[in-house]
């Protein structure tokens, strides 16, 4: 199986490429975890999930395609197979259904967190399948996708696993200070997909932060948004994208070993 085929297969059916590549146990775990998270979240939020699509292109010919292949449904779309199944279960007829889509439900933050995490996890399973299909050995002894996944959950952890302990702690601290600083500025409401749906797509890239925000602080009652809520949302989203860079670097360090670093094309750049 070619690495690109492994990515495509996992995109539609989590774990399918692992089966073909001779890793059936990992394939079952990928399928159960990814599909399980998605449908557990979908069972809580139901139709309301579709209200948080990043784009729908209403009124264009592409709207019909997005109805059944909802690539605008970020961050769930990387788990495309489950998202397509849910799209076929969707009922869009009549104003009552439109009202249901807009109406928040009990446990909305947890439900939306679970579906979002399924999308991120399937990206990591795709990376793992791509690595396995290349049939290479990692120089650090740690699977690059595992290092990236550990970094998603706890920023810096992947570097620690791959042998760059002090660098991992520094990077993790940088991401977490920005994320939790943002959460503090916003009074705990920066991570709130109901209030700031598009920003959540960036925030979800910092696993521990988005789990803490969604489970602990998002449900807290408030009478008015804090003065620096917008600053907090921005910082949390920036921290998410910072963690994406840390994840890609953790993948590279796991791949090339603990002594690896990039020499810039322009050597002066590093000075």
């Amino acid at each position: 199986m070619q690495p690109s085929q492994a990515i495509l297969a996992t995109l539609f059916v989590p774990g399918s490429a692992h089966f073909v590549l001779g890793r059936p146990v990992r394939g079952v775990v990928a399928l159960v975890v990814t599909a399980g998270l998605f449908f557990a979240g979908y069972a809580i939020v139901g139709q309301h999930l579709w209200y948080h699509a990043l784009f729908t292109l209403t009124g264009t010919w592409f709207e019909g395609v997005l109805r059944f292949v909802p690539i605008g449904m970020l961050p769930e779309a990387p788990n495309l197979g489950c998202t397509i199944v849910a799209a076929f279960l969707r009922d869009t007829t009549g104003p009552e259904m439109m009202r249901l889509e807009r109406m928040p439900v009990d446990g909305v933050h947890l439900g939306l967190l679970l579906t979002a995490c399924s999308g991120v996890l399937n990206c990591l399973w795709m990376a793992d399948a791509h690595w396995l299909a290349q049939n290479r050995e990692s120089k650090s002894g740690v699977s690059p996708a595992l290092a990236a996944g550990a970094t998603w959950l706890v920023p810096g952890w992947g570097h620690v696993m791959a042998g760059q302990k002090d660098k991992g702690i520094l990077l993790g601290a940088a991401v977490l200070i920005v994320f939790f600083g943002g959460l503090a500025f916003s009074g705990g409401h920066a991570v709130d997909r109901v209030l700031a749906s598009a920003w959540f797509d960036g925030e979800v890239l910092c696993g521990v932060g988005v789990i803490f925000g969604s489970v602990v602080t998002a449900g807290m009652r408030f009478e008015a948004l804090p003065l620096h809520w917008d600053l907090g949302v921005t910082l949390c989203t920036v921290a998410g994208f910072m963690n994406l860079l840390v994840m890609t670097n953790a993948y590279t360090v796991a791949e090339d070993g603990p002594d690896s670093f990039v020499v810039p094309l322009d050597a002066e750049e590093a000075k």
């Binding site: 660098k167 840390v246 990039v262 750049e269």
Partner: peptide, 8 residues
């Protein structure tokens, strides 16, 4: 981060 192998 990619430009050096140590925190320092």
């Amino acid at each position: 981060a990619p430009l050096a192998p140590t925190a320092k």
